[in-house]
Design a protein around this nucleic acid. Sequence first.
DNA 1: CCCTCGAACGTTATACTATAACCCATGTCC
DNA 2: GGACATGGGTTATAGTATAACGTTCGAGGG
Lengths: 130, 130
Amino acid sequence: MTRLREQVLSLIWQSHRPLGAYDILDSLNADGRKAAPPTVYRTLDFLQRMGLVHRIASLNAFVGCTQPSHHHSGCFLICETCHNVLELPSSSIRNAIEGEARKQGFAPRETVVEVTGLCPACKDDGPTNE
Amino acid sequence: MTRLREQVLSLIWQSHRPLGAYDILDSLNADGRKAAPPTVYRTLDFLQRMGLVHRIASLNAFVGCTQPSHHHSGCFLICETCHNVLELPSSSIRNAIEGEARKQGFAPRETVVEVTGLCPACKDDGPTNE
DNA sequence: CCCTCGAACGTTATACTATAACCCATGTCC
DNA sequence: GGACATGGGTTATAGTATAACGTTCGAGGG
């Protein structure tokens, strides 16, 4: 765990919503570091391999993992209004999906589950928040 | 359904594996049409709205829908070796996921389920195919 | 001690994906 | 025939990601 990696992980954790790679890049540079895209992507790759960060494919963005202990990727609820992301543990869903895949003779390696919609707060606020 | 839309849909159907927007663009232009990216993206948007085409978020690519009758998005098994994609109907999985989301007070609008791994053929071929 | 090697990161350039904004042609409906 | 909606061409640019190579530094072996 180097200074750079700590710095990126901390940025991601502080945000509580998905950050784009270039958001991270800008923060790093605002912070005095002279970084270019490969630096950020390499760091994100590392953090993903460590299970500390997830990539949200629907958004091309990155969030902190809420349960770094389990390495499995989660199931994400993505609010279209406030852009917060909630990670569900819900390995049962994952198991169901991968079981279904195996029934087809498919060998699953990684599973992405991303639900887009409205989070409780934004749903109740009605259209005022949009 | 215009000529352009038929042409794009036909390209996607003929390929049986995800096509990038720029692959489609190149095919169109090889075919005599003078197209630019917005033309392709607009057409893809239309075909998605019609439920004829799905976007694979993990790949930034597009596949034909195998069941255009049901509008819901499917569950995709993506082979890392041969790049074929199998769409599972499996609305039960979708229901389970969205039920789980609603339990959290979340109002789901769209759900992405993408499983990456090895398809039956590539799994059995072993590493020879890689 | 010096050498090698690998990991981490910097640097430059470029590839790939997607959209904004504006234009014009055509068809429909009153 | 004028108003308006739709489809699609055109130009430019924004946003996301990687290739390829260089530099530094520390660990371990001879």
